[in-house]
């Protein structure tokens, strides 16, 4: 059988989601952000809620997320995405609202905002991309940086004596009664990617139930910041990040 016999519109089993715009992504080769954008677009496409979704893009590498997914967006000041999400959700209670934040944004400058949105239990979804580093500004230490991990600001490796421990923000937030769903996923393998998408569908569906905040942490890579190839970075993540940030559901009271 010739390839031209296989490559026909009727045999298509996977194509780029129509919600992903044609603009070329500015992310480094192999960056997890691209894969996470893809599952967000596919989730919204599958639930057929394109007209009802408002995303809040962060400060960090994903600051230009609004260029890539064809939905309504609002850009937030650094760390303030959860506060903006609260405002938008209260003005438009029937819309689906989600924030997309990195670890520097959510776990450092925006710690106050995220704790309070979860404590209020606002019906928004938080997508937390944890790559243990400040990627955009050149690989400085973030609150989630692993102990002993070398970054631009911890050249001898992070020490808890001077810089504290890696912050397990998802476990912390899962303690709050306002959080209905807290899970940690990754997108390094096809199986993990499909599982992450399932959890994202659950999180968006739980917004309609009005039970509380849904929080998805995605353990991801920053191969440029970690100074590895994309494939090495995925392996390094599995070997070093998963013991500290184990994937799986931490709390699920959605009933879905």
């Amino acid at each position: 059988m010739n390839i031209s016999d296989i490559i026909k519109p009727e045999n298509k089993v996977y194509a780029k989601s129509k919600l992903l715009l044609d603009k070329e992504m500015h992310y480094c080769p192999g960056c997890s952000h691209g894969t996470i954008h893809k599952i967000i677009a596919e989730t919204i496409d599958e639930l057929n809620i394109q007209e009802q979704v408002i995303g809040i893009s962060p400060v960090g590498c994903a600051v230009l997320a609004y260029d890539y997914i064809d939905i309504d967006w609002q850009e937030a000041a650094h760390g303030r995405a959860p506060a903006l999400a609260t405002a938008i959700k209260r003005l438009y209670p029937d819309k689906y609202v989600f924030t997309y934040q990195g670890d520097g944004d959510l776990a450092s400058i925006g710690t106050g905002e995220i704790v309070h949105v979860c404590n209020r239990g606002d019906n928004v979804t938080v997508i937390f991309v944890n790559n243990a580093i400040y990627g955009m500004t050149g690989g400085q230490m973030a609150p989630t940086t692993l102990e002993g991990m070398k970054t631009a600001t911890t050249p001898k490796g992070r020490s808890h004596i001077s810089s504290g421990f890696p912050m397990k923000i998802t476990e912390m937030l899962a303690l709050l009664p306002g959080v209905v769903y807290a899970t940690r996923q990754s997108v390094d393998t096809p199986a993990a990617e499909r599982k992450a998408k399932k959890s994202m569908i659950k999180a968006f569906k739980s917004q309609k139930l009005k039970k509380g905040t849904s929080f998805i942490e995605i353990v991801s890579t920053c191969n440029s910041g970690w100074k590895m190839t994309p494939v090495e970075a995925n392996t390094w993540m599995r070997e070093n990040m998963f013991p500290v940030f184990p994937p799986g559901d931490i709390k699920d009271e959605t009933g879905l």
């Binding site: 016999d5 026909k8 045999n11 691209g34």
Partner: peptide, 15 residues
Amino acid sequence: CAAVCPDTVITVYRV
């Protein structure tokens, strides 16, 4: 391959 492609450049066909 298409599922993990960060830039979603792969289209897959099956027969």
